[in-house]
């Protein structure tokens, strides 16, 4: 093989590799873990600086399978008068006044065949951070756990929780 052809082949190999790196990154789309929300709600302020307990806003987490995103009336309990000069709070107030729900983008989503209940995990003493990470340090919520079956099973085994298929699958 001639010198020029071999050099070209090696450089082509690296160019294809470069393309593969970029394509793989785009395909895996890590940015999708932290979508931009319609209102830039910050857990750093509410759960971190103000020290509000998670149940202060997620009022159903201890008694329902869903943690539930707080209703606007919960937000407005404080924001009728607190931080009303902030643009993001004004967006919230507008939605409240127009009777229009804020269309939050779901960050922690599970496939339809998984049956997950928050209340059982909370009652078993699992800290929110185990599955959601350190929310009080997240200016924008991002998914930091894989939420894959292997990970769930590892934790169930470590804590002597049931591992029967039908416990978690429909």
């Amino acid at each position: 093989m001639s010198r020029r052809l071999l050099t070209f082949a090696v450089l082509l190999y690296f160019m294809v590799g470069l393309g593969a790196v970029v394509a793989l990154y785009t395909f895996r789309a890590p940015e999708a873990l932290a979508p931009e929300q319609p209102i830039a709600f910050s857990h750093v302020i509410h759960a971190g600086k103000l020290g509000l307990a998670c149940t202060h806003c997620h009022v159903n987490v201890e008694r329902s399978s869903q943690a539930t995103v707080p209703t606007l009336s919960i937000c407005m309990e404080c924001h009728k008068s607190a931080a009303t000069d902030r643009p993001e709070v004004q967006k919230l107030t507008r939605a409240w006044e127009e009777g229009r729900p804020v269309e939050w983008i779901k960050v922690h989503d599970l496939p339809w065949h998984v049956r997950f209940t928050h209340k059982r995990h909370i009652r078993a003493g699992v800290d929110c951070a185990v599955c959601h990470g350190e929310l009080k340090a997240m200016p924008r919520v991002r998914r930091v756990r894989s939420l894959e079956m292997g990970w769930c099973i590892q934790c169930h085994r470590a804590n002597n929780a049931p591992t029967d298929c039908l416990v978690c699958h429909k």
Binding site: V10, Y25, G133
Partner: peptide
Amino acid sequence: PLPSVTPVLLKLFIAVVFVLA
């Protein structure tokens, strides 16, 4: 793991491939 992958990592990987070439 996906949460550890960031745009900076992509830039570094591009730099590594470029230097390798």
